[in-house]
Every structure is written in structure tokens, then in C-alpha cells.
């Protein structure tokens, strides 16, 4: 365990020669830790001569932030948006949320190309498990999410006949028992 444990209020270094990363704050020209956890120092290069000091939270991410990849389940759809209930944070759901967060995927955020021709009914159905990124904190009611990348989209889906489906292309799921294909915006499996 090479990294040192720092506590909130511990000085980390002068702010002139260090960049504050998540888990730190500046006070009176000096960098201080704001979490209790291991300290990490990023590597320096010619373009970034100052290292970034980060303190990691031992419990992981707590609430969705802009840029976090999340996993959620679709709860409602309508022609302009789909309602998502965020259940876990992290690309493979590393941190399960104690309470689910409501989120919205708007029609223009489902795909990266031809966004005005997207049909929400052909991208998501209620009950699909979706991987998305948070693009904004949104309004009082929900976060805003987007699936406009190859590896984002539906990860698990159940067919109309009630069987689990497998992905076959970027926009189709196949129900192996019945052979039926259904349209979704599929996440690229890695």
C-alpha cells in the first residue's frame, strides 16, 4: 500500500505548484484534502508541469456527476424522451445506488448521427437496462443522460414474448427462442 492516507484538512502542497483534483480544495494558497482516503499524484509531463493531486473516496462514486457512466432501467417512454431510473454508477455498475435517481434521455441524445430521425420506440422499451452517460444535472426532477456513443445503449432487453434477447447489430436484438428481432439502440459489447 504505497499511497498515503490523508484526512480532511491535511495540507497536500502549495497551490502554485499543484493542481487540485477531486477530493481536494484550496485555502490560503495551499492545497488541502477534503476526503479521507488514499492520495494519488498524477504524472507530470511537458504540457502539464504540475501534478494533479487527487484523493479517492474509499466508497467510490456516490451520486451521478456530469460525465459519469451509469446503468439504469427505462421506466417510461414517449415520442420525445425516455425516462430512466439510474440504479448503478460506473460502466459495469460498480457502485449500486441506495436510492435510484430519476433521469431523462431526450430524443436528440439517443444517437450521435441523424438525431432528428430517431424514433424513441425503436430505441428503447420499458424495462430495458441501459448504459448511458450523464450529460447534465438537469432540472429539479431528473438528470439528463445520453446514449450517443457506440458503447452506450441497451445492454439487456426482454422480448415481447418474455425471453431474454441477445444483441446482433447496433440496432437489433434477437430473441433466440422465437427468432424474432426487435429494434433497439444497442450498446456495443466489448
Amino acid at each position: 500500500m504505497a499511497s498515503t492516507i490523508v484526512l480532511p484538512g491535511e495540507p497536500l502542497g502549495p497551490s502554485a505548484t499543484n493542481i487540485p483534483g477531486p477530493g481536494s480544495h484550496i485555502h490560503a494558497g495551499h492545497l488541502f484534502s477534503s476526503l479521507a482516503g488514499p492520495l494519488a499524484k498524477s504524472s507530470t509531463s511537458k504540457s502539464t508541469p504540475n501534478p494533479t493531486l487527487t484523493v479517492a473516496r474509499p466508497s467510490g462514486i456516490l451520486i451521478p456527476e456530469t460525465g459519469t457512466t451509469v446503468l439504469g432501467r427505462i421506466t417510461r417512454t414517449n415520442p420525445r424522451l425516455a425516462n430512466l431510473s439510474i440504479l448503478a454508477l460506473g460502466p459495469s455498475g460498480e457502485h449500486t445506488c441506495r436510492d435510484s435517481f430519476p433521469a431523462i434521455i431526450r430524443q436528440q441524445d439517443i444517437r450521435a448521427t441523424e438525431i432528428d430521425k430517431v424514433k424513441v420506440a425503436e430505441s428503447f422499451r420499458v424495462g430495458d437496462v441501459v448504459r448511458a452517460t450523464v450529460i447534465s444535472l438537469g432540472d429539479e426532477r431528473s438528470y439528463f443522460c445520453s446514449t450517443a456513443k457506440n458503447e452506450l445503449g441497451v445492454v439487456m432487453a426482454v422480448s415481447e414474448g418474455g425471453n431474454q434477447m441477445v444483441p446482433v447489430s447496433w440496432r437489433e436484438f434477437l430473441d433466440e427462442r422465437t427468432g424474432a428481432r426487435e429494434l433497439r439502440k444497442v450498446a456495443k459489447p466489448v
Binding site: 460506473g90 459495469s92 445492454v155
Partner: peptide, 21 residues
């Protein structure tokens, strides 16, 4: 694997959720 890497987002191959079928 959960130890902090130096970048904010995790690097490398993202682990996928297993899809059955």
C-alpha cells in the same frame, strides 16, 4: 481494480454486463 488510477475515468477495457442468451 478499484484502487484509484491517476485519471478520473477508468482506463482500459470496460467490463461489460453479461448478456444471456
Amino acid at each position: 481494480p478499484e484502487l484509484p488510477s491517476t485519471d478520473a475515468a477508468s482506463k482500459g477495457r470496460p467490463k461489460d454486463v453479461v448478456t444471456t442468451g
